[in-house]
Amino acid sequence: MRSIITFLRRDARHFQIFFLAGFLAYGIAVLQWDAEWQRYLILFGTCLAVQTLFIRWKKLPWHSIKSAMVTGLGMSLLLKAGAPWVLALGAAVAITSKFLFRIDGKHVFNPGNLGIAAAILLTGQAWVSPGQWGSGATLVFLVGAAGCMVVLRVGRIDTSLAFLGAFAALDFARQVIYLGWEPEVWLHRMTNGALLLFTFFMITDPMTTPKAQGARIGWSIAIAVLAFLLGWKYWVNATPIWALLIVSAITPMLDRIWKGEAFRWLKSSDQAHLSVKSSPQVPSPLR
């Protein structure tokens, strides 16, 4: 048990993989989703395969395969399609984009986000189901708690809070203050599982958020405002996904204006830990 905790704490992606898999399990076991093993396998498999190709080609460290796992799981939770090739396309676009759309040594788009958008826009045969999570109290607690653990470890809690805060405030202003709905209407909207998952597991990807904290907060608020406007004016569903895609395009610009330290999945102490020949029994320096 202790070794599992040590293992999870070594890399934030371990937490992400653990929790995303947990949500998938929750969806199938509790929320009665169809267990579409074929879909999960295609998404997950394609992500790993494409990542492997790039690792070989670009001689990257093997631990980057974990990022592909996160993407694969995240897409399994969100993307649905009528044909297997659409899923494979989405997953391939997601991983490839990390290596093709690069500015200043950083990839521009959140891989899962771009993969989903590409599958929907390019084929017209894919969709996301924002309603599949419902607004169950247990889920809210689970996603919130798990999400906090992950983002705190990654250090991107500011992104989550700024986005959710801004989005919730705008929606409250419209639904409750202006339209006059009861607060529970607003609460029902805010406890949507898909929104929370987006808040804690997609927007927080440290590789595609701006490096400087101030820029990051502004960027998150911009996503919230855009998501709110798209939903209100154009009645678009799953708006945060589209808002993130659009706002991500300006991330490199924000990085040039506001400098910050680039994020690395393994902290320098971990890197050193990896580079020194040490026995696996050595406790994690993070403790």
């Binding site: 599992i4 293992f7 890399d11 898999a21 947990g22 093997w62 990896l274 026995s279 696996p280």
Partner: peptide, 23 residues
């Protein structure tokens, strides 16, 4: 799900440990 998650976690841990050992 439990089986798949268990295998995945075990694999990851093995991978992680072997990396620590090999690096």
């Amino acid at each position: 799900i439990a089986i798949v998650a268990g295998i995945a976690l075990a694999l990851l841990m093995i991978r992680d440990r072997s990396q620590l050992g090999a690096a």
